[in-house]
Design a protein around this nucleic acid. Structure first.
Length: 422
RNA sequence: GGAGGGCUCGCAUAGCGGCCGAGUGCACCGGUCUUGAAAACCGGCAAGGGAAACCUUCGUGGGUUCAAAUCCCACGCCCUCCGCCA
């Protein structure tokens, strides 16, 4: 959630942000009104409450007639307090409801516009010229079959559409990528974490996934728990309601977990292969830091993502995602998009967001500063999302005979230099 | 799933319906003493809102009462024992 002080002092900042996102600007003025009403009601309640407190105290020491008289007026006051209290509660809830609908204030450098208005920051590597090499590249589904690495048919049989099995070298590839990623993360100072993937409502709400993203979240009705779509959720909520010590530098976690996504409303998109699936494993980086360090940490997250992609020897580009395509918590987001030869396109493989204090305010995660206890900043970034990285590696490193060269960095973890048709 | 016990300021504990927003010990911070440290002693030390007065918070939500940490109800979580189980 946004800071109410900013709302009062600089509402235009928030209006412009909402506008840039293509979200409801009117919410800002609704919130200003609701907040004002709320504060009035709070004052009113506190005034009668203070009166009641002093009166109640005098009742205790009074005697006889005096006491009866006091009791009578105390009773009246009690009714007033009750009314003022429920009015306060009502208005507080109303303003909270609006507050939760307003997204974080977009960064001044974030390109304004919709999904297509991203800005390309850089290209790294060059897509291979398969024509010059004299063969037509196979797509990852075909390669997966040839290598007996990916089985989407049996995935569909057993678990439905957007499901798959990783088998043989496919499964080994996942372990190799995860091990390499975790090693990279540990070297960079991250604490590796295997978090729960079933979480309670406050964790889901607090991270902002029950807003616009709610339709993509699996909910287990019977137990009122959610399956997380990313370990960002349990990692962010890990320090919920805590006061952190971030004076000695940021706190960094690398979570490895399965991720579950309903992919509602994507029926036509990416139906072939494992680019868009209901369940996959991912190593996610998550950082808690001082707000003034957030931007520098964001740059570091992007660099670690690039380090991983460089190690995979895959051509990719980095984009600065446009305002209309940001998550509600993020002020700025960089995506790394790997080249997918058979689609002749760059496709998102990793993503890093700077959420400033937005998530931490909801989750009540703070740190001590010279002028009080303040919300920390949170940031997240994908180190590796397995299926998409497998797509990129298989397609980019394939040979004419269907074999695939293993990136140098993965060889020690995989124990082979080439994946051979089975 | 069954039977008990518990949930109070970082930790551990005390707490008669009004004098309790709350005592004590440990930890922590500052000071005295010391060449330095320890010990001892002195002082400070929960969080949020508010300029302040003041208000809110003793697991959560309701209720009783003029007044609730304290009484009643429901729920949650933790622990112990029993059953079941990867």
């Amino acid at each position: 959630m946004i800071d109410l002080k900013t709302l009062r002092e600089n509402p235009d900042l928030i209006r412009n942000s909402q506008k840039a996102r293509g979200e409801d600007v009117g919410l800002v003025d609704q919130l200003i009104a609701a907040d004002e009403a709320r504060r009035l009601a709070v004052n009113e309640f506190e005034a009668v409450r203070a009166e009641q407190n002093t009166l109640s105290k005098s009742v205790g020491s009074a005697k006889g007639d005096e006491k009866a008289k006091l009791l009578e007026s105390a009773k009246e006051l009690a009714a007033k307090v009750k009314a003022a209290d429920s009015k306060r509660a009502e208005l507080e809830e109303a303003s909270k409801a609006i507050l939760l609908q307003i997204s974080n204030i977009v960064h001044t450098d974030t390109p304004v516009g919709g999904e297509a208005d991203f800005k390309v920051l850089e290209h790294i590597g060059t897509p291979r010229d398969f024509a010059a090499a004299g063969f037509e590249p196979k797509d990852h589904v075909e390669l997966g079959k040839v290598l007996k690495a990916i089985d989407t048919e049996r995935g569909a049989k057993v678990a439905g559409s957007r499901s798959y099995y990783l088998t043989g070298v496919g499964a080994l590839l996942e372990f190799a990528m995860v091990n390499y990623a975790i090693q990279l993360a540990v070297k960079a100072g991250f604490t590796p974490v295997i978090p729960p993937v079933l979480v309670k409502p406050p964790a889901m709400e607090g991270t902002g996934f029950l807003g616009q993203a709610a339709e993509n979240v699996y909910h287990l009705e019977e137990d009122d728990v959610y399956l997380v779509g990313t370990s960002e959720v349990p990692l962010a909520a890990y320090h919920m309601d805590e006061i952190l010590d971030v004076d000695n530098g940021p706190i960094r976690y690398a979570g490895y977990s399965s991720c579950f996504r309903r992919e509602a409303g994507t029926y036509g998109k990416d139906t072939r292969g494992i680019i868009r699936v209901h369940q996959f494993d991912k190593v996610e980086m998550f950082i808690f830091c001082k707000p003034e360090e957030a931007e520098a940490e964001h740059a570091k997250l992007l660099q670690w993502e690039k380090d991983f992609l460089n190690a995979m020897e895959i051509p990719y580009r980095v984009i600065d995602v446009a305002s209309g395509d940001l998550g509600s918590s993020a002020i700025r987001k960089f995506d790394c998009e790997a080249w997918v030869p058979t689609q002749n396109a760059y496709r998102e493989v990793t993503s890093t967001s700077n959420c400033t204090e937005f998530q931490a305010r909801r989750l009540n995660i703070r740190h001590k500063t010279d002028d009080g206890t303040k919300a920390v900043a949170t940031l997240n970034g994908t180190l590796v999302a397995i299926p998409r990285m497998i797509v990129a590696v298989l397609e980019n490193h394939q040979n004419a005979d269907g074999s695939v060269n293993v990136p140098q960095a993965l060889r020690p973890f995989l124990g082979m230099d080439t994946l051979l048709p089975a």
